[in-house]
Amino acid sequence: MTALARTIATFFGVGLLKPAPGTWGSFAALPVAWGLHVLGGFPLFALATLAVFALGWWATAVATRGTDDHDPSEIVIDEVAGQWIALWALSWPATRHGIDITALWPGWIAAFALFRLFDITKWGPVGWADRRGDALGVMLDDIVAGAFAAIGVVVLAGLYHGVLGL
């Protein structure tokens, strides 16, 4: 494995933290997401997410080439991409309405918790993607988990602001 692929796959070494490297990877993704959003709003954040997905796919393929384990625990770039997808549900409206994204702090907690829930349980399509057994599957299961988490954030926001009127 090349040093560059290892650095990307472990998100600059975060994946080497124990226990629960996936949770550490998701947590480390949060301040970087905030910084990207502050620098360029949703457009920059979305482009960065796509770039992380592409780089992560490459780095995961390189890191797992010739091994029996298609998804070693130290590879957390997939968690970064998935967590960022979950945060799109905050970045888009914050950018569109000129809201300080830190004011949406309950959404950050929901995005993190829901993403981890879907990523760990591998429910439905998340599990299907994970069972591909290749580098694309490693990345896709977290993208799907992130999409489910984003939908969950939107539903919870709708319930809180719409149904409850708060």
Score class of each variant (00 low, 15 high):
residue 43 P to Q: 02
residue 59 A to V: 00
residue 76 V to K: 03
residue 47 L to Q: 12
residue 86 A to F: 08
residue 70 H to W: 15
residue 130 D to K: 11
residue 8 I to D: 02
residue 105 W to Q: 11
residue 135 A to Y: 09
residue 142 D to F: 02
residue 66 G to S: 09
residue 104 L to I: 08
residue 92 W to F: 15
residue 41 G to V: 10
residue 149 A to H: 03
residue 30 L to M: 15
residue 72 P to T: 07
residue 83 Q to Y: 08
residue 45 F to A: 12
residue 24 W to R: 03
residue 73 S to Y: 01
residue 52 V to K: 05
residue 142 D to K: 06
residue 103 A to P: 04
residue 133 G to D: 04
residue 53 F to P: 02
residue 49 T to C: 12
residue 4 L to S: 14
residue 122 K to M: 07
residue 112 F to N: 07
residue 56 G to D: 10
residue 148 F to W: 11
residue 134 D to M: 06
residue 166 L to R: 15
residue 5 A to G: 06
residue 10 T to Q: 02
residue 125 P to R: 14
residue 90 L to Q: 11
residue 18 K to D: 04
residue 16 L to G: 00
residue 154 V to E: 13
residue 161 H to V: 11
residue 132 R to C: 06
residue 4 L to M: 12
residue 27 F to K: 01
residue 60 T to Y: 00
residue 4 L to I: 14
residue 106 P to M: 08
residue 63 A to D: 04
residue 14 V to C: 00
residue 150 A to N: 06
residue 163 V to Q: 03
residue 6 R to G: 08
residue 46 A to W: 12
residue 36 L to A: 11
residue 115 F to I: 05
residue 21 P to Y: 00
residue 52 V to E: 05
residue 74 E to D: 14
residue 130 D to E: 15
residue 47 L to S: 14
residue 51 A to S: 12
residue 145 A to I: 03
residue 72 P to Y: 04
residue 57 W to D: 03
residue 17 L to K: 11
residue 9 A to P: 00
residue 149 A to N: 01
residue 138 V to A: 10
residue 158 G to V: 11
residue 89 A to L: 07
residue 13 G to Q: 01
residue 57 W to E: 01
residue 79 E to Q: 10
residue 76 V to N: 05
residue 96 R to V: 11
residue 43 P to I: 08
residue 94 A to G: 11
residue 102 T to V: 15
residue 82 G to S: 05
residue 57 W to I: 02
residue 30 L to Q: 11
residue 109 I to P: 04
residue 150 A to M: 03
residue 12 F to K: 00
residue 12 F to P: 01
residue 103 A to C: 10
residue 44 L to R: 08
residue 89 A to I: 10
residue 38 V to I: 13
residue 162 G to M: 09
